[in-house]
């Protein structure tokens, strides 16, 4: 028993204390959070824009005329291609194409990865958000237009806030998924949390400690986020105006 404990302690010191290797994990965690955070923001911006384009086309294309119809038709087509390509290919392939092909001249891997994950997430956010917009009663839209708000104002002041509230739990789940997906960032030379654990393994030749530590950190993050989402959902339900 005590021998086993001694061994564990030795392993711990070797993997985390020696050479301050715990700092590798900390830096990796910072990198993971940085990429996930900015990718989430980018994902929301892209997702909301694509969702508004897609749902306004679906609901109103028969009422559009002339130039605005042509512009919307093109935007809608681009959105559809975007959704199909992004959701139809693995994120790690998208990441590698972004880094090694599209931004081959860039040395800022962190920015390219943030872009890649944000663009990827945007496609999923768009579909979540579109269902949110579609779930809002069309009377809300008509009430906004009747007051004299134009299309964009009606979306911004009336439809989007309600849609956002309806899909907040689904959005949070998408962000949890995104956080875990950033673990492939190591493919493009980024030392994120996962890669940091792997580097320690390569240096110490012991796999158990660093990999379990990495897993536990992800688990703690996801559990904390899930707890927050649950709290949020309950808050939304009780204040269900």
């Amino acid at each position: 028993m005590s021998a086993w404990f001694e061994d564990l302690k030795e392993q711990f010191i070797l993997n985390f204390i020696e050479g301050d290797r715990w700092k590798w994990l900390l830096d990796g965690l910072k990198m993971t959070l940085h990429i996930a955070f900015f990718a989430v923001i980018l994902g929301i911006v892209i997702g909301v824009a694509v969702a508004v384009i897609r749902s306004s086309w679906d609901q109103n294309n028969h009422k559009m005329h002339g130039l605005s119809r042509a512009v919307m038709a093109v935007l809608n087509f681009i959105s559809k291609v975007y959704l199909t390509v992004i959701r139809g290919t693995p994120v790690v392939v998208q990441l590698m194409i972004m880094y090694y092909v599209i931004f081959a001249s860039s040395t800022n891997a962190r920015m390219v990865a943030t872009l890649a994950f944000g663009i990827n997430s945007g496609a999923y956010v768009a579909e979540i958000f579109r269902s949110g917009i579609m779930s809002i009663d069309k009377g809300q839209f008509e009430a906004g237009r009747s007051l004299g708000f134009n299309y964009i104002q009606t979306m911004w002041y009336i439809i989007v806030p309600q849609a956002l509230k309806n899909v907040l739990p689904a959005l949070c789940n998408e962000f949890i998924a995104l956080l875990k997906e950033t673990s492939v960032a190591g493919y493009v030379t980024i030392t994120d949390l996962t890669r940091a654990g792997d580097l320690i393994r390569g240096r110490t030749f012991s796999a158990f400690m660093p990999l379990i530590a990495v897993a536990l950190i992800y688990l703690a993050l996801v559990m904390a986020l899930t707890w927050l989402v649950g709290k949020l959902e309950r808050r939304l339900r009780t204040s269900d105006h």
Partner: peptide
């Protein structure tokens, strides 16, 4: 449309705003 008030069968109040906000958003923004 700002000069034509419309009242619907289903009320169509904005559920995410207070009554006061429902009434002031048009005059303030428009």
């Amino acid at each position: 449309r700002q000069k034509m008030g419309t009242v619907f069968q289903q009320f169509n109040l904005f559920p995410h705003m207070t009554i006061l906000k429902n009434m002031t958003i048009g005059p303030m923004k428009l």
